[in-house]
Design a protein around this nucleic acid. Structure first.
Length: 309
DNA sequence: GCGACAG
DNA sequence: ATCTTGTCGC
């Protein structure tokens, strides 16, 4: 009995959640509050954090929450914490935070206690910020509760406020030619909710960046781009890898022996300035260097031209 | 009834 | 979110 899984949470719960979102939304700061955010090279920024929650396959309760901290601009992992958790809230579009934030918050607080010196100056969050049904996505939620600058990094367009992944939208995506190209996501309400960003030269599918907390959209987009060795920004990608690996181990699965040492790779060159929009800007060919980098393992998540998922 | 649906 | 190897392209 009592399997509310079929119909999701009762209206009463959703109503409470909406009220909570509205209450916290008043605390969101959607502009730059730190000096480094306005610096063309982000000088002053030394640590970028990433969070993610991975799930156990056949289980709707067990999951693993991870927080990682990377140096900037090197993007080397200097902190990693993963924790198995028992999910309480179900996933409901528009209420992702109530499912994941409690655990992410715990991870941040644990870091604050045990390694305050490693506290990230900004968090990249898997999901949306103000690009949300009620303007308060998971990145805003975590940002307000931790009071850390946060950026929403979504892999799919959340179709709200008139935004649609239609032919016109796809056409705009097609015009994003190189890393750093982007276009604004203007909602019917007349507000720019976020930006579609081509984060990597070899990835067609854009990222949907939106303000989480204490950072302007412009800085958020610029920073995200500076964190991308692949399509998914390293902080989020590393958090994802960590949480999945943690799950494997906790399940006693036959994980790959110890095949992990990507060698420090050079940080991605940040698009200088003028990452305004469109493409076609004078971007001289830069592919002359024979990148001796470790072969980008195809099994990752980038360059997999599956646009239908 | 049909479509949409961050993670 | 999760299931998954190979495979096509630069």
């Amino acid at each position: 009995m009592a399997l509310e899984a079929a119909g999701g949470p009762p209206e009463e719960t959703l109503s409470l959640w909406k009220r909570e979102q509205a209450r916290l939304k008043a605390h969101v700061v959607d502009r730059d509050t730190e000096a480094w955010q306005r610096d063309p090279a982000f000088s002053g920024l030394q640590r970028v954090g990433g969070v993610d929650v991975s799930f156990v396959k056949g289980d709707s309760v067990r999951a693993c929450a991870s927080l990682v901290v990377l140096t900037f601009p090197e993007l080397e992992v200097v902190y990693e914490e993963s924790r198995m958790v028992s999910l309480t809230a179900p996933y409901v579009s528009g209420f992702l935070a109530f499912r994941e934030v409690p655990f992410l918050l715990e991870l941040v607080q644990q870091l604050r206690e045990k390694e305050p010196g490693l506290m990230p100056q900004v968090l990249l969050v898997d999901g949306n910020g103000v690009l949300h049904h009620r303007g308060f996505g998971v990145a805003c939620h975590l940002g307000v509760l931790t009071d850390l600058p946060c950026v929403g990094v979504a892999k799919k367009l959340l179709q709200v406020d008139g935004l649609e992944n239609n032919a016109l939208h796809k056409e705009k995506i097609r015009l994003l030619q190189t890393r750093g190209d982007s276009f604004p996501l203007l909602g019917d309400s007349g507000t720019v909710l976020g930006m579609a960003l081509r984060s990597h030269d070899r990835s067609t599918r854009p990222l949907y960046i939106s303000v989480g907390h204490r950072m302007s959209l412009e800085a958020a987009v610029r920073l995200t781009c500076c964190c991308c060795r692949f399509r998914i920004p390293e902080p989020v990608r590393q958090a994802d890898i960590s949480s999945r690996e943690h799950i494997r181990k906790s399940l006693g699965l036959p994980g790959p022996p110890t095949l992990r040492s990507p060698k420090a790779q050079r940080p991605v060159a940040c698009p200088k300035r003028d990452s305004g929009e469109s493409s076609g800007e004078g971007q001289p060919p830069q592919d002359h260097s024979p990148g001796p980098r470790t072969a980008p393992r195809p099994g990752s998540q980038e360059q997999t031209g599956k646009d239908w998922q």
